[in-house]
């Protein structure tokens, strides 16, 4: 009995999470609750004009309230929840050329992200292995990498847009640029710092260059490569949202911006939350995948 974790140990942290969430929603609700409309000191004419303008509405009992659809400031959680319900209800509906359901938008973002990230990672790992295995190549290419590395992937956008003349490919290339450098640097480091023993074994066994690469070098550097991919993954995820915003390419980031253009702040908040959940889901999936390639060092 004593060996089983107590109810408190197992669920306590999650209860605390729920509590924090509840507290946050309460504070949010409290801070954004619309002020009560005070009809005192206003003439019947003024009230009629305000009602006509849509500033106030009459409830069932005949009292005036501020119009809940015309609130200024940040909308409360209930409004965002309502918005989310409508959006999720028509997640896969195409209403027009630019008005696609949230499920479709998320799908576009994930496709765009995966295309850029996979292409960037393949190039980065190849480049990293090459310079990791060759000291002269590393020394020759290092200055370029050091200069290119700190450039924000978004800074490439005008040049890319000008070169490829297509926002669809530009968005993918921005993600590509964002996923390049951390993987290059980590792969080169990982390949360069492989334990001498493993290379000695490969030499004893007279492995060919390719066999050595696939049976010794890449597995030995795998933990470092995966660490690099993970950093690239985050940086690519951060880049994909503003790329969509700036290029007007349909996606979760695009939704954020279009809702802002609609002055639909609930929509903006909903879109931000969607970006967060999509990022979390992708990172979770990546973590599961990465676990397949890690091992315990001896």
């Amino acid at each position: 009995m004593a060996l089983r974790p107590s109810w408190k140990d197992r669920f306590g942290p999650y209860l605390l999470s729920l509590f924090i969430l509840g507290l946050f929603l309460l504070v949010w609700e409290g801070a954004t609750r619309p002020p009560r409309f005070d009809a005192k000191g206003k003439t019947e004419d003024q009230l009629t004009t305000m009602e006509f303008n849509g500033d106030i509405v009459k409830d069932a009992a005949g009292h005036y309230l501020w119009n809940p659809d015309k609130v200024k400031g940040i909308p409360g959680p209930m409004k965002v929840f309502e918005k989310a319900r409508t959006e999720l209800g028509e997640a896969f509906v195409k209403k027009g050329t630019n008005d696609h359901g949230i499920g479709l938008l998320v799908g576009y973002t994930i496709k765009r992200f995966m295309a850029g990230f996979l292409a960037g990672s393949v190039v980065a790992i190849l480049l990293g292995v090459l310079i990791g295995l060759s000291k002269p190549l590393f020394l020759a290419l290092n200055p370029f990498i050091q200069v290119l590395k700190p450039i924000s992937p978004l800074a490439w956008m005008p040049l890319l847009l000008y070169s490829v003349k297509d926002p669809f490919w530009t968005a993918i290339l921005v993600v590509f640029m964002a996923s390049l450098w951390p993987t290059v640097a980590n792969t080169a480091f990982g390949v360069n710092s492989i334990r001498k023993d493993y290379l000695h074994v490969a030499a004893l066994l007279e492995m060919s260059y390719l066999r050595r690469l696939f049976t010794v070098v890449l597995p030995a550097a795998a933990p470092a490569i995966i660490a690099g991919l993970r950093i690239s993954f985050g940086s690519a995820l951060v880049a994909v949202v503003p790329a969509e915003m700036l290029l007007g390419e349909l996606g979760a980031g695009y939704l954020t911006w279009i809702e802002w253009n609609n002055l639909d702040i609930s929509g903006v908040i909903f879109a931000i939350l969607v970006v967060g959940f999509v990022g979390y889901a992708l990172d979770f999936a990546f973590g599961k995948l990465a676990a397949l390639f890690t091992y315990t060092e001896v």
């Binding site: 334990r195 023993d197 493993y198 000695h200 074994v201 030499a203 004893l204 066994l205 007279e206 049976t215 010794v216 597995p219 030995a220 795998a222 091992y295 315990t296 060092e297 001896v298």
Partner: peptide
């Protein structure tokens, strides 16, 4: 150069951990 005609048993074992 190293070759299959001379196998080494290493102090550090040198086993591939993966």
């Amino acid at each position: 150069k190293p070759g299959l005609d001379r196998m080494v048993v290493f102090q550090s074992f040198a086993l591939m951990p993966w």
